[in-house]
Computed example of a mutant assay.
Amino acid sequence: MVNLASKFQAQPWWLLLVSSLLVSNIHPRANAEPQVPCYFIFGDSLSDSGNNNDLATTAKVNYSPYGIDFPEGHTGRFCNGRTMQDIIVQLLGFQEFIPPFATARGQEILKGVNYASGSAGILNESGQQLVSI
């Protein structure tokens, strides 16, 4: 029986092919309407854009060095710059990043909301060790 995982690991050409096909279909358009009317984000720390800032948790990143490469500074993203979701939002043609649920208000909600939260998980036990009540 052929082990497909080892076959794909030995030949990285497939990753280049798939990524070039995905990127070739998404072109940012300057001064154009977004390609989709709204964008809602669900996830964990890989997509969180500041939902944990006001929660009773130690899973917060609204301080240095997080955000040092982000134009707005420390936002609560679990990285030093843009998240994968921020990049997708820009490629889709949005002029601004999708706001976190914790700070989204009024008409902002109609273009989308980021519900992602660091230390989130599918199990009830996910992130329990980070609660600081």
Rank of each mutant, 00 (worst) to 15 (best):
T75K: 13
E125Y: 03
V61T: 13
N52R: 10
G67A: 08
V23C: 08
I87W: 09
F101S: 11
A116G: 11
S117G: 06
F101D: 10
P37W: 07
M1V: 12
W13A: 15
G67S: 08
P28D: 01
R105N: 08
A10P: 00
A10M: 02
N3Y: 03
Y63R: 11
G76H: 08
N53T: 11
I26C: 10
I88Y: 08
T103N: 03
F40H: 13
R82C: 01
D48V: 04
S132G: 01
Q128P: 00
S47K: 01
N52T: 11
V18N: 03
A56I: 00
P37T: 06
T57K: 04
S132I: 03
N3D: 15
I68S: 11
A5C: 03
F78C: 11
E33T: 13
L22M: 13
N80H: 10
A104G: 08
L123D: 09
Q9I: 02
D48N: 08
A56Y: 06
Y115H: 14
A30H: 07
P34T: 04
A59D: 05
L22T: 04
P100F: 08
Q11M: 02
G73A: 07
L55T: 02
Q95V: 02
T75E: 14
G50D: 07
N80Q: 14
P99E: 00
V2F: 06
G118H: 03
V89I: 14
S117R: 08
T58G: 10
L15D: 01
A10R: 09
V23L: 15
D44M: 02
G76Y: 07
N52L: 04
V89R: 06
Q9V: 01
Q95D: 14
F8E: 03
L16A: 12
C79G: 15
P28M: 00
N124Y: 04
L4R: 04
G81A: 13
M84H: 09
F94C: 10
I133D: 11
T58M: 05
I133H: 07
Q35L: 14
W14Q: 09
